[in-house]
Design a protein around this nucleic acid. Structure first.
Length: 598
DNA sequence: GCCGTTTTCGGCCCGACTGTTTTCAGTCG
């Protein structure tokens, strides 16, 4: 009997496959391939990352091409990468290039053309080669390169090595730098309007650079204002309309300055996302316009030279972002939705939700810890802080008994806490609800017996232990937990800690199916490190009719402010006001979430 | 590479900034 060949490869998940597709794209780029082909790989990678459903199912049912941006060719490569961990195309590309060549693309200002030139002239194939060539002064001698470029490359190598080049920060940390800066710029006499743009405005969970746009007739004065901001460390480049600076926290900010009539289109341009723009500009073109950051122009009837600047007489005045979408026959798309995730089709068809949840719609604070478990504030301190925010009700949800590391409450302690809640209730206006963040145990049971659940007003069910289970185990565990005949709020669904810890391995859609067949809601956890469930899963939950709860997971009075991040994340998942349980009054909310019976 | 109430072929978003040029290519967002 012939020996069975040893299988040395393994299945890849969608993130690993996306990475492989980007590697193919990068290597093709080095070979000078058609830029649109390169873009197709990026589009495919992005589509995979945004996928809500189960990749294995799509591969098995040969439905990959149902995903917009994935055609026959990419589907074949994705299936191969998923099932075997390899792709013939990628293997061949890797064989044609030195293994270190891709790290050169990480160097700022170094793209495929320059890398190819350096490789041809000097044989540079790795970061180390490049550094040696720069230090020896050989790069400056290559045609098209000079002393300044050589120095910039050396700086760039340093940035790659210290990994500060593409450092991303949490949205909340980015806003901590951005909002004071915007306020400072707005105070400048030359400023007519200043807005934050970029991924921070879209509410992305992490942010790389800050983009700020200003309306002013005096760009130089605005550049001075940026240089004079307390958070600015240095101005690193300055053109007529664009100034780049580095902030104390290490982030870079791009400030763009234009006259007020160009402000709306520039703000829109800098808000992104890139994918949203590409599609929007295609729509503009279909309708006889060309759109750029400088405005909307009617295309000339005759085919004119595309390299000529647009004819000013054909410019369409655009007084706001709303007007821009309106001019193109589209409903206004709020920044949080601009990700090319179907929002432009919906804006065209009139199916874009007009009543996305807003911060002012939320009437109750859900998921709050106190000194009874691992919180830093007492019940009364939390209650008074909520009162001060104008909140109508507050759920006290300390940890359950199994969460010993977090000071989880035993049944006796929980009952004692109810007495304390009653005492505090007499002194505060905000309505206090008795709750618990009940651990989802290893076998999927909740951490409280029925006689306790019967007396609780609200239960958040969360995984806090055995987080490294494999996907089948974790899915079974959560499906069982979400199937118990109790109303439960699925707490911080996939357990990710942004920039720190990967999500649990779990098939979210199966858990949502179980929840939809039982009674419960999903949480949008506003802790800036979590923002969980994430938008694509929120859309999957909404599609199943599962209600949403916006929570703060507060461990202090200050973290009641996390509500804004829960709202932003929910909007990114297209969540409407009516779908959010804690936009309702206290009595209605309590009736909706009561774990057992009336 | 993908995609299609104009198209199965021929399109595919658009401009700012830098450095090295003497009119432009490369990179970036």
């Amino acid at each position: 009997m012939a020996a069975v060949p040893v299988i040395t490869t393994r299945m890849l998940d969608r993130f690993e496959i996306a990475h492989a597709l980007r590697e193919i794209g990068a290597l093709l780029e080095l070979e000078g391939e058609n830029p649109f082909k390169i873009r197709a790989y990026e589009t495919g990678a992005r589509a995979l990352e945004g996928l809500s459903g189960d990749l294995a199912t799509l591969v098995a049912e040969k439905r990959l091409t149902d995903i917009p941006g994935i055609g026959e060719a990419l589907a074949g490569k994705i299936a191969s990468l998923h099932l075997t961990g390899r792709s013939e195309t990628l293997d061949k590309l890797r064989a044609r290039h030195p293994p270190g060549i891709l790290e050169l693309l990480q160097v700022p200002d170094l793209g495929p053309k320059k890398i190819a030139a350096l490789h041809a002239a000097l044989g540079v194939a790795t970061l180390a080669d490049l550094e040696a060539a720069c230090r020896a002064g050989r790069v400056a001698g290559v045609k098209g390169f000079g002393g300044k470029t050589q120095a910039r490359i050396l700086e760039g190598i340093e940035r790659v090595r210290t990994r500060s080049a593409d450092r991303r920060v949490l949205l909340a940390d980015a806003l901590l730098e951005a909002e004071p800066l915007v306020a400072h710029l707005r105070a400048a006499p030359a400023a007519l309007a200043v807005e934050l743009a970029g991924s921070a405005r879209r509410g992305r969970e992490t942010v790389g650079d800050l983009d700020v746009v200003a309306a002013s007739h005096d760009p130089a004065a605005m550049a001075d204002a940026l240089a004079g901001s307390p958070g600015t460390v240095e101005v690193s480049s300055q053109g007529d309309t664009k100034i780049t600076a580095r902030l104390a926290g290490g982030m870079h900010v791009d400030l763009r300055v234009v006259p007020p009539e160009d402000f709306p289109t520039l703000l829109h341009h800098l808000t992104g996302s890139k994918a949203h723009h590409v599609k929007l500009r295609g729509i503009a073109r279909d309708q006889g316009y060309t759109l750029s950051e400088w405005g909307l122009y009617r295309l000339a009837p005759e085919n004119t030279d595309p390299d000529l600047p647009p004819d000013p007489s054909r410019k369409v005045p655009v007084e706001s972002e709303e007007a821009l979408y309106r001019a193109l026959g589209l409903a206004y798309v709020p920044p949080e939705l601009r990700e090319d995730a179907g929002e432009l089709e919906a804006a065209r068809d009139g199916t874009l939700p007009a009543d996305l949840v807003r911060l002012e719609d939320v009437r109750g604070m859900v998921h709050c810890h106190t000194t009874w478990s691992d919180g830093r504030a007492t019940i009364e301190e939390m209650a008074r802080a909520a009162d001060a925010l104008g909140i109508e009700y507050l759920t006290i949800t300390d940890h359950s008994q199994t969460a010993g590391y977090a000071g989880g409450l035993t049944a006796d302690r929980l009952r004692a806490q109810w007495d304390e809640i009653d005492r505090v209730q007499e002194r505060v206006k905000v309505k206090l609800l008795r709750g618990s963040e009940a651990d989802v145990l290893e076998d999927g049971a909740l951490d409280w017996p029925d006689e306790i659940l019967e007396e609780l007003d609200v239960v958040v069910a969360s995984v806090h232990s055995r987080m490294k289970m494999d996907e089948d185990q974790m899915t079974r565990r959560l499906v069982r937990a979400m199937s118990v005949p109790v109303f439960k709020i699925w707490g911080h669904g996939v357990g990710r800690l942004l920039l720190e810890r990967e999500p649990y391995a779990v098939r979210v859609e199966e858990v949502l199916d179980a929840l939809a067949a039982s009674r419960g809601a999903v949480e949008v956890n506003g802790d800036p490190r979590r923002l969980d469930l994430e938008p694509r899963h929120l859309r999957a939950a909404r599609a199943r009719g599962i209600p949403i709860v916006l929570s703060v997971d507060a461990h202090s009075t200050g973290s009641l402010g996390y509500l804004r991040y829960a709202v932003t994340t929910a909007r990114r998942g297209w969540v409407r006001r009516g779908e959010v349980l804690n936009t309702r009054g206290a009595a209605e909310f309590a009736a909706a979430v009561r774990p057992i019976g009336p």
